[in-house]
Amino acid sequence: MPKYVIERNIDDAGKLTAADLQGISQKSCGVISELGPGVQWLESYVTDNKVYCVYIAPDEDVLRKHGEMGGFPVDAVNEVRNIIDPSTAE
């Protein structure tokens, strides 16, 4: 199943509290359970004004639906084509 990175523009995302992040996470997990077993949230990276979320999903459309159902912005969805890390240089 394809892996995607979703870019979400969220002003002051880096200032969200632990309680805010917990609530957002709970909402996301609730929406995923409604969407069915084909969607898996792996992790998210919170920066000052953006959140980058990594998902496994059958297609981009279901991820956009997740954003719509959860009230999360979806500014870009990019399919991961390859993964590299320092071991790639060996």
Rank of each mutant, 00 (worst) to 15 (best):
P2T: 00
P2Q: 00
I6G: 00
E7T: 13
R8I: 11
D11K: 11
D11M: 10
D12Y: 14
D12K: 11
A13L: 13
G14Y: 14
L16A: 06
L16E: 09
L16N: 12
G23K: 12
G23S: 12
K27E: 12
C29S: 14
G30Q: 09
G30H: 03
S33W: 06
E34Q: 15
L35C: 08
L35S: 06
G36Y: 08
G36H: 02
P37E: 03
Q40P: 08
Q40I: 03
L42T: 11
E43P: 06
E43I: 09
E43G: 02
E43H: 07
Y45A: 02
Y45L: 08
T47L: 02
D48I: 10
D48L: 07
N49L: 03
N49A: 00
N49E: 11
K50Y: 08
V51S: 14
Y52F: 13
C53I: 04
V54C: 03
I56P: 04
A57M: 05
D59Q: 08
D61N: 09
D61I: 14
V62D: 03
L63H: 06
R64F: 00
R64H: 08
R64P: 07
K65D: 10
K65W: 09
H66G: 01
E68T: 11
F72C: 02
V77A: 02
R81Q: 12
N82H: 12
I83L: 05
I84N: 05
I84L: 12
P86R: 02
S87W: 09
S87N: 09
T88H: 01
A89G: 04
